[in-house]
Structures are given as C-alpha cells and as structure tokens.
Design a protein around this nucleic acid. Structure first.
Length: 537
DNA sequence: GCCGTTTTCGGCCCGACTGTTTTCAGTCG
C-alpha cells in the first residue's frame, strides 16, 4: 500500500471480509466478528500500524487470528483469507451491495440461487419477474429493488466536498513548486462539485488530471485576478458582471478587461482590484450565483456574511453511547481546543435507553466541571414512521436541546412525510429539525418533503432548521437556507460529528450558510451560552 | 472468529421498519 496504512484502511479490509463472508453464505457470527473488529480499529485512538500482534490481541474483539491478519494488511494491504474469498466472489456481485435494500443475505440468494452476477442481470430478473416466488421475495420487494436500481443508475456523478479535498491532495503532487489556488464551484462553497478547477501561476499548458475531474489552467501573475475571477464563476454571475462591465465599455476575459474602443487590455493581479476598478464592493465567492449580489455590490450593500470566528458552538454530535467513536471527554476537549462555549451531545434516541440517557446527563455534568466548553444534554430523536417521537414528552422535557430527525419511512409520499416533520415541530420540546431533506450526496436523493411548508411552519413554531455540515449531507442546501432566512426562521449549524476530526467540518456548514446569505444573526450558533439557554427555554 | 467461563462450548448489539415465510428475517442507521 502507498504510504502509511491508516486505521481506516485496515477497518475497510476487515469490513469487506465481513460482507464477503455473508455474501458467500458463511457463518454470520464469524462474519460479524470481522465487522466488530473493523469497528474497534476505527475507534482506536492510536495508529494500528505501530502495534504488534500481542498488543492487537489486547483490543476487545481481536484475537490471535485477526491480529495476524491486521499485521498482514499493514505490511501488504490485504490478507490471504480475504484474497482467497475475493477470488471466489465476482466484483460485480459485490457492487450490488450499493443498491439500497440489497443486503448481504439477499445478495447471497440472488447470486447463488438465481445466478445473478451484475446489475444488468438483476434488472433483467426484475423485469422478467423472476424474483417473486423465490424464498423471501414477493411482488413488493421485487418492485422496490427495481426502483432502487433505477435510482442507483441515475445517481449524479458529482463529488462531495470531501472527495474533492482528497483529489486536491493528489493534485499537489502534480504541481511541485507551483503556486496554485482552487477556483470553480469548490471555491464558491458549493455542496457538490462536478469538476475541480485550479488556477496555477506559470506558463504551462492547461491540463486535465484524474480522468478529467480536475482542470488546471495556467496564468501569469499580472493577470491572476481576472483568471481567478473567470475560473471561479458561476456562469450566471460572470454573465451579469460582464453586462455591467460592458456598460462601462469593457469586455471581461480571463486575460483582463478589454477596452471595447481601443482594444487595449487592462490586467489585474487580484480580484479586489477588478471590483474596485468597476466601482463595486468585492463579492465573496459564496455569493456569486446571480441572485442579486452584483446589483447590491454596486450599491455597497452586500450582507455581512457569517464567519467561522462568529461561532460559539456546535449543535449536533454523537458519542459511543450511540454510533459515535468518541467519549464525552473527547468532545469537551475538542470544544475547548476550538474555543467553543458549548457543544450539544445528541445521540440517537433509538440507541439510547431512557436510563442510559439519564446516566449520560450525569456524565455530562461531571465532564463540564473540567472544561470551559460546556456540553449540552441533548438528543437526536427519531421522528418515527407514524409521526411519533422516539422518546415520550417527559423525557424530552428534561433535555437541554432536542433535534428531531427522520431516519425511516423515507419512501413515504410527500404529504405524509411533510406532516410528520410539521408534527414534530408542534412538540414544544423540539428545538431543531435535523438534516431536513435526508439526502446523502451521490448516494441517496432527498426524501419527498415540501420544504416551503416546513419553513412556513418553522416560522410559526420558532423551530430552527439544521444546516447539517457533514460533507456527505450538507442539508439544508443554500437556496432553502436563503428562503428560511427570509422568513425569519433560525438556522442551526451542526457537524453531526461521530469522531473528533469531524468537528472541523463546521466550515462546510458555514459555507452553506454564507451561500444562503446568512449574517451572524441568522444562526443560533452565534449566541453566547446564556443567550442560547434563553432561546432554548 | 471472539469471548468467557458455571473453561473447551454456546452465544454473539439493537430498535424501527418492511415485507413476507403470518411470527420471522433482512436491512438500515
């Protein structure tokens, strides 16, 4: 394997072993042992690459056998049993696990009993109605799988911001000693990115890297301003700015502003110089979407957008009490390091009993005595399929903060699903609606929900809407943030952090907020702890 | 495969949900 083998690399191999064993129809408990080992490695606070077999076996869930296999992964990226198993299960079969509703047991039947090897095979079997009648399959499941295949095929070929970040790390290796910056949708803070655009200073030929997913344009220092402006876009913004430049007698090009009468080119080293030359306020990249920002910039009336430094806390985090990989102590320590006044602990209601929740609160009180950053006793409570909440009212009443989220019944029709959320907002203890559309970028479309109704109702109940800052979600999207803000609905940015490193994802949420024209007043995160407690009560 | 012990077998995380085999199994988070 290239470079240092990370815990995540090891965990991925072990998790793959789990899935392959299940697909092959091996003993499920043996498979589960690999899943458990993978989880343990993921949550391990130290690097597994540095541990010998002896130390590895001291980790719960890891015995002599898996310890040896981990050493093998560290040394050569895989292990013999996995290689052997992989040789017996076609890769195209494994890919079918990416289709929602197709799990390992189902896949075992599809593969072994129906001889299905590829998505095309599966689609043909659904069309030929060959699934119904097989043990465990009826008409409904067959239709559901057909629908899931269509969705899977239509899924957008876009990158999440974290995928783009990973790509950018590799771009750096292609441009040694070259000064470069990222432009395009990435720089504008977009939630999804179809092409990473890079502007480099130098005289090279423009190049495409990584299968056309990265485009590098070279420019001279003296024209860097216009080159960056044009590469950043958006197209709509550039068209509008171009009109304004035209009215002043110039044409905007990557090389500069061309004087329409003389043909002379005026060059600019920075974007600020261009804006100033045209007599306007500098427009932050996040606003460049042709939503009225150009006109406001000429009137020097752009909004004072919220910044990371305005934030005093994070509203969404998970610990080992549910599916997180961090302790209360870990979270408080991160909060201190980030200079936060508070972080809400919001584990899943479905994973935390009422008794465990009470114990957690006691733990929070203990941890709070040792830290500046105060943990809030909260919950991410399920809005269940029938609209009821995951905890009774008396439990919710005792919490500092309640996020209500939809995690099930994602296929319900729009009116039913919307009403579930409206109903949750009616509950006086619910403070925030979590990830309001449920989308997973590149993996799952938003569920059918009428966000305009949600926003209208939030304005009535005073419920905040979450800006989930996980790069896999970024939910709400900018346009709905903008609408919510206009209706006076408060927004609550939360990272949904499951491990300590994820708290820094808040930057993505702030990008979304800025794209939604949010000022510090629009986010509850800018409240001091005492102001927040006031708002919550 | 791991673990614990009432040691060398027997059980393994769980709640909600959905569809199906109508009392349970598989998926998801």
């Amino acid at each position: 394997m290239e470079g240092e083998v990370t815990n995540r690399d090891v965990a991925e191999r072990l998790a793959l072993m789990d899935r392959l064993l299940e697909v092959a129809g091996e003993d499920r408990h043996r498979a589960a042992a690999y899943a458990r080992a993978a989880r343990q490695i993921e949550r391990l606070p130290l690097t597994v690459a540095g541990l010998d077999e002896e130390a590895l076996t001291r980790i719960p869930g890891i015995g002599v056998r898996i310890a040896g296999q981990i050493r093998e992964i560290v040394e050569r990226g895989s292990f013999q049993e996995l290689d052997e198993l992989q040789a017996t299960v076609p890769g195209s079969v494994v890919e079918l696990l990416d289709i929602p509703g197709v799990g390992p047991r189902t896949l075992h039947v599809l593969w072994k009993e129906l001889g299905i090897l590829t998505i095309d095979d599966l689609e043909a079997a659904v069309r030929g109605r060959r699934l119904r009648g097989t043990r465990g399959f009826g008409a409904k499941r067959e239709e559901a799988i057909g629908k899931a295949i269509r969705r899977y095929r239509e899924r957008e070929d876009v990158m999440s911001r974290s995928e783009a970040d990973a790509l950018l790390k590799r771009v750096a290796a292609h441009l040694p000693g070259v000064e470069w910056v990222v432009a395009g949708g990435y720089r504008r803070g977009a939630a999804t990115i179809d092409e990473v655009e890079v502007v480099a200073i130098g005289s090279g030929e423009d190049i495409s890297l990584h299968g056309d997913r990265v485009k590098v344009r070279f420019t001279g220092t003296e024209r860097f301003g216009t080159a960056l402006l044009c590469a950043t876009g958006s197209a709509g913004f550039l068209a509008r700015l171009g009109e304004e430049a035209g009215a002043q007698g110039y044409r905007l090009e990557p090389g500069g502003l061309v004087d329409l009468r003389s043909g002379r080119i005026q060059t600019f080293e920075s974007e600020e110089d261009i804006f100033e030359f045209l007599g306007m306020e500098a427009i932050p990249p996040e606003l460049r979407e042709d939503r009225g920002e150009v006109e406001l910039a000429f009137r020097h009336a752009l909004p004072e957008l919220v910044e990371i430094s305005d934030l005093r806390g994070d509203f969404h985090s998970h610990t080992t009490a549910s599916d997180g990989h961090q302790s209360l102590e870990d979270v408080a320590a991160v909060g201190d390091a980030m200079g936060y006044e508070y972080i809400a602990i919001t584990d899943h209601s479905s994973r935390v009993s009422v008794e465990a929740l009470a114990r957690q609160r006691a733990g929070i009180e203990r941890v709070n005595r040792r830290h500046t950053c105060q943990l809030l006793a909260g919950s991410e409570v399920d809005i269940r399929s029938d609209g009821s909440l995951g905890y009774p009212d008396r439990v919710l009443a005792d919490l500092d903060l309640v996020i209500a989220s939809v995690h099930s019944g994602l296929d319900q029709d729009e009116d039913i699903l919307t009403r579930r959320v409206l109903g949750a907002m009616e509950n006086e203890h619910v403070d925030i609606i979590g990830h309001p559309t449920g989308r997973l970028i590149g993996r799952r479309p938003p569920y059918a929900i009428d966000l305009d109704r949600v926003i209208e109702h939030a304005a009535v109940t005073g419920t905040a809407l979450e800006i989930n800052a996980s790069p896999h979600r970024l939910d709400l999207e900018d346009i709905y943030i903008w609408r919510a803000k206009k209706r006076g609905v408060k927004l609550a940015a939360g990272t949904d952090a499951h491990r300590v490193a994820e708290f820094s994802n808040i930057r993505y949420g702030i990008m979304m907020a800025r794209r939604g024209w949010c000022t510090p007043d629009d986010l509850v995160n800018t409240l001091t702890l005492s102001e927040l407690l006031e708002w919550l009560s």
